[in-house]
Amino acid sequence: MNVFRLLGDMSHLLAILILLLKMWKTRSCAGISGKTQILFALVFTTRYLDLFSSFISIYNTTMKLFFIASSYFTIFLMYSKFKATYDSNHDSFRMEFLVVPVGGLAFLVNHEFLPLEILWTFSIYLESVAILPQLFMVSKTGEAETITSHYLFALGSYRLLYIFNWVYRYYFDGFFDLIAVVAGCVQTILYCDFFYLYITKVLKGKKLSLPA
């Protein structure tokens, strides 16, 4: 564990808590893409299948359990409790356009052709594009609530911090995982446009609105 990875995990945790807080306080999931949340639940489910077969640390296990539980709870809130406020018209990104190619790639490019390893690879590739329905929804609605932009900033920062973690681990532990690094870079690059808008607008107190 290093400071970058810890900060990254905390940023990820913060993002999830911000999202749950937003939905709980406003009793609404307006502006949030349910498809992205479904993809995140799929990411955690396929990545943490080794939850009971391999123990790394208490921290690792509790975080995995929290991520899985919170992702399904978020879906429950969006598609059941606050269903009336779910904006399905603007959440129109086709998830199959992501899941199918990513599934195929996981079969072709992986570290080892074993079920758990292919599912882990699928989860890494899927996570790198899972935010697309959410970014697509923000671009369609042309704006996002300030709390939603904080959620996206924390979520984007988590994988950016993981990139620093991989640089650190490469130089200090000699650890290098090409699949995770490439997917992590793609994931972070997808946020660049948003990061620019967040820093130039939201941090100056303006509302996040995309140029129409």
């Binding site: 995990d9 990545r47 080892e112």
Partner: peptide
Amino acid sequence: EDVLDIHDEL
């Protein structure tokens, strides 16, 4: 290639 036998990151 050294297979990453266990993924220790979240």
